[in-house]
């Protein structure tokens, strides 16, 4: 599992495409296109599966459940994705998440909850990931 993070509009997507040499035909699930979290791993194909914009899926979770429950759901999602990945040696799940955790405390409770969950979720993700990169305007810094 490969976690790619960094601020908004820093070129994370472009970096991932470049790094994995992804052209047209690959499995790319983006939260910016679909609000549903890709649970059904039987629809995954290829060796590299990219899940983009996970912060948006996390936001969706906070609308329905409390923070503790959201985090538990997130951890089981990570489990599902990791299991798919571990079935074959060549497989990698790449998770792209925008860092929204370093700004001013948001006015709205919903935004504060979203931000809190995102911070925890990224910690959980980084803990299980084999590799973590932070992208800064197209340049990567490998943290793990």
């Amino acid at each position: 599992m490969h976690f790619v993070t960094g601020g908004a509009y820093n070129g994370k997507t472009k970096w991932v495409k470049n790094f994995y040499g992804l052209t047209e035909d690959h499995c790319w699930k983006s939260a910016y296109d679909q609000t549903k979290i890709p649970l059904n791993v039987s629809r995954f194909y290829g060796d590299v599966v990219v899940l983009e914009g996970v912060e948006q899926w996390l936001k969706g979770l906070t609308a329905e459940s409390g923070l503790e429950e959201c985090r538990a759901i997130w951890q089981s999602l990570l489990g599902i994705w990791r299991t798919w990945e571990s079935e074959r040696h060549e497989r990698t799940v790449v998770i792209i998440g925008t860092d929204i955790t370093k700004g001013i405390v948001p006015m709205e409770k919903e935004d504060r909850d979203w931000r809190d969950l995102t911070g925890w979720a990224y910690q959980d993700l980084a803990a299980v990931a084999d590799r973590v990169d932070v992208i800064w305007y197209g340049l990567n810094q490998q943290l793990k």
Binding site: A8, Y9, N10, I100, G103, R115
Partner: peptide, 25 residues
């Protein structure tokens, strides 16, 4: 750039600034 949830005018500005920074780098 700010590392926080973005929307509206700030989001428009952040996108152009981020893309400019990527290009300059």
């Amino acid at each position: 750039l700010g590392y926080e949830p973005l929307s509206g005018l700030v989001d428009v500005y952040a996108r152009q600034l981020g893309e400019l920074h990527q290009w300059i780098v």
